[in-house]
Amino acid sequence: MNIHAIKAIYLFEMARTWRTLMQSIASPVLSTSLYFIVFGSAIGSRMAEIDGISYGAYIVPGLIMLTVLTESTSNSSFGIYMPKFSGTIYEILSAPISALEIVMGYVGAAASKSIVLGLIILLTARLFVDFSVAHPVWMLAFLILTSVSFSLLGFIIGIWADSFEKLQVVPLMVIAPLAFLGGSFYSIHMLPPLWQTITLFNPVVYLVSGFRWSFYGVSDVNVGFSLAMIAVFIVICLGIIAWMFRTGYKIKV
């Protein structure tokens, strides 16, 4: 295992975060805070409780997930896309480093950023809404698993994309709608039966549900099933990445 190389990629990517602190950390924290103010404090105070939890507190896990999903995807996709765009990918490809090590460096850095961001938003949310975390270890586990799985997805998007437009299209047109429709702002039990069934095809439902369970001990779907679905998602992403490196898809000819 080329630990030095993994560390080099990881630190390079983390350095990019510190260089773009406003965009990487401040901006998502600000926009999520606005959600808390509008939906949590203002509108939330007039909404009925869900599963015995105030609406403001109920949406905290979902809003954290919403940000973590989009940031994981965009951080990771941008991380691998930029070397392709600028031509510096030659250095990665000609280095004595395996595909797994490359993924560990890029995805590790993207996931780390998202985890830090998620925790900052968690602390920020406490300023606006009163809530508690019933299972902090599981909360952290869900945060890590979600960050890793969507960073893997972002890595795939970064390799697939050959323009900045394509880079943006999946997070904006796919991830964000899935996150909004994945129970971030509501319980899926509030939907008509047909839509409940359709919603179960949305992988974000399992992330939000599991994450919410770690806060309040209530979930839309079984927690074990949520974990299994995340594991399946990670395995699928790893399989696609392995295929991309084996065939050189959009990396090597």
Binding site: N2, K7, I9, L11, T88, E91, P96, I97
Partner: peptide
């Protein structure tokens, strides 16, 4: 082809690290 936002020293450290040394 070089990461233009990096400093000379940082980019050199990056290259050294990639080699596994």
């Amino acid at each position: 082809s070089v990461a233009i936002f990096e400093t000379v020293w940082d980019t050199l450290k990056f290259s050294r690290g990639l080699s596994g040394k």
